[in-house]
């Protein structure tokens, strides 16, 4: 399994290196996107940004970026591999397609984490937001990552069946943005909403709070449920497309 992971790291690096201009533009776009939201708020209703707590808002934006990057990784992998005609070779990986997609999603999420850091840092400096990462921040990140992975597998299942899913993903992305931002003002009843406990946990882990065990438990249970559902959906659809003979069809 190590060499499978290594291959994905090398592939990710090779593609980022080859298309470095697009990578940089994407990073800059992400920074400008968030900055434009804050700038827009202050220009449309002057003073309103003063009522905003920018720290949590920034962390939720990072969580949104991470989630979207993860869920797109599997789905877009499926879409582009089918388009290139190489999906069947990916399915010949040791352990099969599902394992290789998970490994790729893991690697791309790690890249996403690095990218999130490069987004977070300039924004924090630009907006003068002081972040206080706690020693338990990886525990704050893990449930969000697992939930995103589960969701990504679900989206991948849709992509593996329907092949071209850009339009659908745009809808999901637009639904996610207001949903995630509504989690900035977290209330106790929100704990059962999808992604909510994980997002809140990540936010707390970067604002110097102590580890809330109850919230962490709920976040992990939810993330494992997401993961199990995603794995189940992907395995079922993968068997279905192999029965119908449409795995490699575009």
């Amino acid at each position: 399994m190590f060499w499978q992971l290594w291959s994905e790291v090398i592939l990710d690096w090779a593609l980022r290196k080859r298309y470095w201009f697009d990578e940089l533009a994407g990073l800059l776009g992400s920074i400008l996107y968030f900055y434009a939201i804050i700038l827009g708020l202050s220009n449309l209703s002057p003073g309103s940004e003063a009522g905003l707590d920018l720290g949590p808002l920034l962390m939720v934006f990072v969580a949104f970026n991470l989630t979207v990057a993860t869920f797109q990784s599997i789905a877009y992998t499926v879409q582009s591999e089918v388009g290139r005609g190489t999906i069947e070779h990916l399915a010949l990986a040791r352990g099969g397609l599902l394992r290789q997609l998970l490994i790729r999603a893991f690697v791309e999420s790690l890249s996403g984490l690095l990218w999130a850091f490069f987004t977070l840092l300039p924004l924090a400096l630009l907006l003068k937001v002081e972040l206080k990462p706690t020693f338990w921040w990886p525990l704050g990140f893990l449930p969000l990552f697992l939930s995103s992975l589960g969701f990504a597998l679900g989206m991948g299942a849709i992509a593996i069946y329907f092949k071209r899913v850009d339009g659908f993903f745009t809808i999901v992305q637009f639904l996610f943005l207001p949903y995630f931002f509504s989690l900035v003002r977290f209330e106790s009843w929100m704990v059962h909403l999808p992604f909510a406990p994980a997002v809140h946990l990540l936010r707390l882990s970067f604002t110097g709070e102590s580890l809330p065990l109850g919230l962490m438990g709920i976040a992990f249970v939810q993330s494992f449920l997401f993961l199990a559902a995603g794995l189940g959906a992907m395995a079922w659809v993968y068997a279905l497309v192999r029965r119908k003979g449409i795995l490699g069809e575009y």
Binding site: M1, W3, W6, L15, T86, L90, L92, A93, R94, Q100
Partner: peptide
Amino acid sequence: RNLYMNLSLLENALYFGGIRG
């Protein structure tokens, strides 16, 4: 349908060899 068009021959070989362990 066997290789990635935007990678070199060597990159392709190392990638597809790697995913087979």
